[in-house]
Amino acid sequence: MNQTSLAPYLNIHGLEKSYPAGSGYQTVLRGVSLQVYRGERLALLGQSGSGKSTLLNLIAGIDTPDSGGITVDGVSIGLLTEKDRTLFRRRHIGFIYQSFNLIQTLTALENVQLPLQLNGADRRQAAEQSARMLDRVGLGARGDAFADQLSGGEQQRVAIARAMVHRPALVLADEHTGNLDAETGASMMGLFNEIAEETSQTVVMVTHSSAVAATANRVALITDGRIAESDLNVSDALAW
């Protein structure tokens, strides 16, 4: 219960989302409401298809909800234009995907540089900052390697570096250790948390790994498109 007296950094209320499937629609989210406070690390637990990833995409503004609203740091995402939403995302949100989603045609370093360049950073400064970030994730020597020349673990570390290099206030992670073995996953989580804590980033991570969930401040449970529990502590969650 690390709830502060401040307003929630991320406020989600009544979120509904369905996708066309076959002849009708498949409802994925059925009125999700959730508050996450600045600096919190929230783990979202749930079964496959429970709507976790959709929720992350909606938060990032990559997708738009059918109804309901999302405010991030007081900004209502749904009211923004596509362009502003993109700009908001570029500045304030880092996203780590389960499949890393590195740009194959760019080197590790160039991948990490992308968010800085997008935000208009000076070219040299961006290069230095990205190199430092790669160093942080232990890939200082692999900066010139192309994405598909890296191992899965290395790619994941590049993805983390890319998501956090521009110090976004909100980091979204979708099963970011899902493709890694337990040992690598654990060390990755350590690194991830370390960086997040340094800049008191707010983190929402989707996982079904208890080890990952164990590093969170709070665990929310999502079932059938609804938040079943939003305030479990780790041991509760594990027991649950």
Partner: peptide
């Protein structure tokens, strides 16, 4: 897919 990633990273249309 690559373009989608770029969009997700924050490239406007």
């Amino acid at each position: 897919h690559e373009f989608a990633v770029l969009r997700a990273l924050g490239l406007t249309p």
